[in-house]
Amino acid sequence: MGLYHVGVVVLPDWVAHLLLGGCIARFSNVRRGYTLLLLGAVLPDFSKLSLVFRFFFDGETLLTVMNLFCVIHTFFGVVLLSLLIAPLFAAPKRFSLTMLLVGGFSHLLLDSLLNPFGGDYWFLWPLAKPYLRTGFFWADSPLPALIIGFFAFFVCLGPGLWRRVTGWGKGRF
């Protein structure tokens, strides 16, 4: 059992994560400090930094090191890391923390759509259950970035067009 039933790495897709973070910021009407939300949206993927250690370790030792880093790719890891780095920013802590958490959770939500064969993401590690199980996209699929990019085009680049087409978000932009 494990967080990733799929193996060593789930590929990062920062484009999709950043676009989703940008959309959330736009819809939340956050004009200043929205990059904190973007930071939160890519923060869990900092666990991929463990790949640097493949030049120094291999086998079980490398897996142990990677497991160590993977802690920040879990729900509790996101919460704890956000609490730790929020004071680095000279902004109200409530604001910094909220932005980082919303971004981090958006990352986990988007990642929960991935996985081969509907496998398991144990985001709630060290709690055993419940885990998220969807498996809509493969990790190397460009579809999440394309779908969110299409949505982001209307939300961020063409808000007037978005309003005219859907009638949503009036007064938000």
Binding site: G2, G7, V8, N67, W125
Partner: peptide
């Protein structure tokens, strides 16, 4: 995580 290696298999 380091002692039980539960996340990556």
């Amino acid at each position: 995580a380091a002692t039980t290696s539960p996340i990556l298999e």
